[in-house]
Simulated assay, not measured.
Amino acid sequence: MIIRQEIKTDYREVENLVRESFWNIYRPGCYEHYIIHNMRYAKSFIKQLDYLIEEDNHIIAHIVYANGKIHSNNESKTLPILGPVSVHPKYQKQGYGSKIINYTLKKAEEMGYPGIIVVGDEKYYSRFGFEKAFKYNIHYEGMDRNDEAPFFMIKVFDKNKINDYQGIFSNPESYTVDIELLNEFDKAFPPKIKEKIEGQLE
């Protein structure tokens, strides 16, 4: 197993991996591979935290981070958000996701970030030290400030510095998906059937 940074020649293989990982999970089809594609060319992209795992010369896991913004008192500061993180279906539930998350969180702390935001399953991410961002007076854009939003979490590296980051968090611009452009982008990949499955978010 090798953990290394993504390079340009990995791009299409990684996009295929991401597509396989998320297909029909949260919605019919997926758009995470399109987010990854756009993220690499965005100013918010944190290239130093763009990592993958190789096993037997195949890319089986991938993770990215990008800078979101926290708005407060007519000013804004950047704070990284984790994800998407992807593991090929054949390698899921074998610890690869935990390995790449822990590895890059350590890198992020070494880079001096006060904390990392994530939106996801609180039961899963709490094992990495993530807790409700509400606790630090950081709120998700579009949510009521009184809503604790357990899916909106933060991993704090420096509790003193994080006090300066109170406010409303907004996602990086690359998280926004134009469905028509997504459908056009998806034509470059092998055909897959979109299915509506119980439990999907959309």
Results as ranks from 00 to 15, higher is better:
Ile3Asp: 02
Asn146Trp: 01
Glu148Met: 10
Asn146Lys: 08
Tyr113Thr: 09
Asp158Asn: 15
Ile63Asp: 09
Tyr165Trp: 14
His62Cys: 00
Tyr51Asp: 10
Ser174Trp: 09
His139Cys: 00
Phe157Gly: 11
Gly29Thr: 12
Lys99Ser: 02
Phe151Leu: 01
His88Lys: 01
Ile100Trp: 14
Gly112Tyr: 13
Ile117Phe: 13
Val177Gln: 04
Glu55His: 11
Asp186Gln: 13
Lys47Trp: 03
Leu182Met: 12
Leu79Ile: 13
Lys123Gln: 04
Lys159Arg: 14
Leu17Glu: 06
Asp147Thr: 10
Ile168Val: 12
Ile168Trp: 10
Ser170Tyr: 08
Tyr125Leu: 02
Tyr125Phe: 05
Asp10Val: 02
Lys8Met: 13
Pro114His: 12
Tyr91Lys: 12
Asp56Arg: 14
Asn57His: 07
Tyr103Gly: 02
Ser98Phe: 10
Ile168Ala: 01
Arg27Ala: 05
Lys90Tyr: 03
Met111Asp: 11
Lys90Gly: 03
Ala66Arg: 04
Ser98Arg: 09
Tyr41His: 10
Gly167Asp: 04
Phe152His: 00
Leu52Asn: 03
Ile2His: 13
Leu105Gly: 06
Asn16Trp: 00
Pro191Gly: 00
Tyr113Gly: 09
Asn102Leu: 06
Asn160Leu: 08
Val14Pro: 00
Gly97Leu: 01
Ser76Ile: 15
Ile63His: 11
Thr104Arg: 08
Phe169Thr: 01
